[in-house]
Design a protein around this nucleic acid. Structure first.
Lengths: 414, 414
DNA sequence: AGAGTAAATCTACACCCTAGATTTACTCCC
DNA sequence: GGGAGTAAATCTAGGGTGTAGATTTACTCT
């Protein structure tokens, strides 16, 4: 009755081996049958059969330039295959509170085009943002479409979309309803893009940052499989990568840091940027000595970058703020490191660049704590695009996992 | 050259399907080929072939009493198979600070024999224990051997041993060297039992409690796959079961609660029993009113059970201690629940029985906190044997995972 | 004893992989 | 330019594993 339903049979083997070959292609660039043979232990006949099948499906291309390419020395030249990077594209969306960015990437994660849109503040006070839920949905869709067109891709080429939001997200892409901020920043993106791609993922931004760091050069890497990606900016968010996998929790809320309200020496989950501004503004309002350049700034528009710059220049008021922030961050990291036993905490987000001395100071405090199990604190090497990189990586991982199930319709023409 | 090494071939399928059949046997009791067919989608021929193979290996027995058993109505009676529960035994060891208990169980986890030994206190002050590392190793071995003999099992019948210790443990069964307590309570059990069974596991006790709760009636269960097992007694330990799997951390230290030192309203990772005694002793020493029965006790030997009993009897001093403990526990649970987004926190360990009002009080405080994401606090339904149950479950899980690899020598006579 | 029934067994047959012989497509060298 | 030499590709059994469906078997019920 069912045609391609159960099939607990030899055919399963074929699928398994096809996956292995495709996975090899994904990790390696151009390759020959011999490469796959040594890695998988399969016979040449089998490997070539599988490769041809994958070519027919559209996932691989045959390169046919063994000679042109320098590798060949003697003997019959090997057929060379490689992943068809442009068989489809994925879109990584960073949908923050004050901006939306969409990046289109090929199947290796190489960015093809990027479009960003910022959501303006309601006033100079920098707190409320203009766009409501509906506005955000429209903006997200427009930004994604623009990026896709800029990449020269058709709508059917998009096989996966991953959206990063600064809110907890459950397995179905839904954020808990209890917090207005979460409802605003995740206004149903899963439903919005449901028809645009076979795979649609909505995920917490810090979780995606953690995914990005896992494969980053200075990040998790092969040896380090327990770490936390901490996004510091206006707020705080943590992505928990423990034992090589993401810890999400019941409704995706693992890594929420409200509990810092109750931690001595921290007291709130406010971000470093927010606090730097607030403390600087307070200090200036109540008057600072003439040796501080901060005193010449307007306390209402003071900026965390200004605090960071002043601290670097040796300003005593700014230095004190940096110290307070550093000890706060250090305490936070020690607490998280103790409970979750991670090797490393990797900091990204706006404040990691505008206030580098805070991270450095906290790292020194942690090193000096004498705790042998204390985590190592690092600044992300990925910079601004950390979250987007993670979204693309996550989307690609989903594509890889389901590659053989995806209908050929979704993957452009051969 | 190698005989049974790679084998990326049809034979793999056979293994996969054999595992599926064996897994069915493990979950179901007596079964027929038809049962497996509906569950796996395999053909009768295949299923029967696999069953016969598993019988030959010793994992299954054929029952041959389709008629005797009431089930049969019409048609040719089906052959009935079932797991050979006594094909091997596993041992679960609860190696605490002040006691060692070994339970021998069959392949379904049914306990066959149990032997316990307590490690006496060095003095009436109840702090230091007599046995050193070497003494503990000897005692553990003796207790395991006695339990095994009591179960009527030969040494070769033991296929797996799981040891629960109140210390963090890494993947190799080793505890971090930095803490004397950890070195004392895990004096190299992995090496000690290495030759006694094919599978030797050393694991943190709270982690094993979490494993036990997962399959307990009131515990995790199918619907709840994020929860924390909290062991309260002299100290505190947490087993983190998030998204259906155990969170262990770099060196097994996830769930260590030293960070509570820095949490307002908690302040230390001391256990409820310890604090109950300390606070009661302090209160009595500094004098209590005549309406408190505690005043008649010797402050040096006062016991947490006495505090619990007094509180139940309405003693005001005890009630205040209980209240303090409850608010401490509630705060702790809210912090853990917030960071890890768990459905439930399940409390076990000595203090959950001697101080039930503390748990109840904390549960009320959490309910009353108005936090919609707050976890539900429950007392474990497993009682004393929680850790042992988890050790057995964990050992069995390991056996099931590797069943087909285990040589037939390890599994008694047919 | 005979009909009815459902499990067990038996008999193709398709698929997948391996192993080894053979062929092919090159380079290198005289 | 025409052989070695070489390593990949291809071809040809052959074994293992599953399904599908006809046939046989072991019962119960009448």
């Amino acid at each position: 009755m069912g045609e391609n339903d159960v099939a607990t049979s030899p055919q399963v083997l074929r699928r398994v081996n096809a996956r292995r070959v495709l996975e090899h292609a994904w990790q390696t660039g151009a390759f020959t049958a011999a490469d796959v043979m040594t890695e998988t232990g399969l016979t040449r006949s089998t490997v070539i059969g599988l490769c041809d099948e994958l070519v027919r499906m559209g996932w691989l291309t045959e390169l046919e330039d063994a000679r042109t390419f320098g590798t060949y020395t003697k003997g019959r030249p090997a057929r060379r295959y490689s992943l068809r990077e442009r068989a489809a594209v994925v879109v990584g969306v960073d949908a923050g509170y004050d901006h939306i960015a969409a990046t289109v990437a090929d199947l290796r994660g190489t960015p093809l085009a990027r479009r960003t849109a910022s959501i303006p503040a309601a006033g100079p006070g920098r707190t409320e943002r203009l766009a409501d839920a509906e506005g955000r949905r429209a903006l997200a869709r427009a930004t994604v479409d623009e990026a896709r067109r800029a990449a020269g891709s058709a709508a059917e080429d998009v096989v996966a979309i991953a959206v990063a939001v600064p809110a907890p997200v459950d397995g179905g892409g839904v954020s808990p309803p209890e917090h207005w901020f979460w409802n605003l920043t995740n206004p149903g993106y899963a439903g919005l893009f449901a028809d645009d791609a076979e795979i649609v993922i909505v995920e917490n931004d810090a979780n995606l940052a953690a995914i990005a760091e896992r494969s980053a050069p200075g990040g998790g890497g092969r040896d380090v499989d327990s770490f936390i990606a901490l996004i510091v900016g206006e707020g705080l968010g943590a992505g928990l990568m423990i034992d090589g996998r993401l810890v999400r929790g019941r409704r995706g809320g693992a890594g929420e840091l409200r509990f810092l309200d109750h931690v001595e020496g921290v007291g709130s989950a406010d971000g470093l940027a927010l606090l730097a501004r607030r403390w600087a503004s307070e200090a200036v309002s109540s008057g600072v000595g003439p040796d501080s350049a901060l005193g010449r700034l307007d306390p209402r528009t003071i900026d965390e970058a200004q605090v960071g710059a002043a601290a670097l220049a040796g300003d005593p008021v700014a230095a004190e703020i940096v110290d307070r922030l550093a000890s706060r961050l250090a305490r936070m990291c020690l607490v998280l490191g103790d409970l979750l036993d991670v090797d490393r905490i990797i900091v990204s987000g706006g404040a990691s660049r505008s206030l580098p001395m805070v991270i450095e100071g906290a790292a020194r405090l942690i090193d000096g704590s004498g705790d042998p199990s204390a985590p190592e604190l690092r600044i992300s090497t990925l910079g601004e695009g950390c979250v987007t990189t993670g979204a693309i990586a996550h989307a690609l991982a989903a594509v890889r996992a389901r590659a053989l199930d995806l209908g050929p319709t979704a993957r452009g023409a051969a």
